[in-house]
Amino acid sequence: MNKLTARQEKFCYEYVIDLNATQAALRAGYSEKTAYSSGSRLLKNVEIQKFIQTLQADLEKTAGITALKVLKEHKKIAFSDTSMIREGWMTLKSYKELPKEIKDCIQEVVTRETKYGNEVKIKFYDKQKSLDSISKILGFDAPTKIEQKIDFDSLTDEQVNSLIAKMTE
Rank of each mutant, 00 (worst) to 15 (best):
I134L: 09
N20W: 06
D18F: 00
D151V: 00
E14N: 15
D58C: 03
N161S: 08
L26A: 04
D18Q: 10
L92I: 01
V16S: 09
L131T: 11
L42A: 12
E147P: 01
Q8S: 05
D126V: 03
K121Q: 03
I52P: 00
K69N: 01
N45G: 11
R27V: 00
Q23N: 02
Y36W: 12
G139V: 05
L131G: 07
V109Y: 11
L43P: 04
N118E: 14
T168Q: 06
K166R: 05
K115S: 11
Q148W: 02
A6R: 06
Y15D: 02
E108D: 13
Q49T: 08
K75Y: 06
Q8C: 05
A35M: 11
I137E: 02
P99C: 06
A21D: 14
Q148E: 12
L163K: 12
W89G: 04
L155A: 02
A35N: 09
I85P: 10
I106M: 05
K103R: 14
K69W: 00
D153L: 12
M167C: 13
D151L: 01
A21S: 15
Y30Q: 09
F152V: 13
W89Y: 01
K166L: 10
Y116G: 00
T54H: 13
Y95A: 08
T168L: 13
E108C: 12
G139K: 11
L59W: 05
A21P: 08
V16E: 06
V160R: 14
E147G: 15
D104S: 11
G39C: 08
D141W: 03
S130R: 04
V120Y: 07
A63P: 00
Q148G: 00
E14A: 11
S94L: 03
T5S: 14
F11P: 05
G64Q: 12
E14P: 09
S38V: 04
L92G: 05
L26V: 14
L59R: 15
Y15M: 02
T168G: 03
S162H: 12
K166Q: 11
D132M: 08
G117V: 05
A63N: 07
T144C: 05
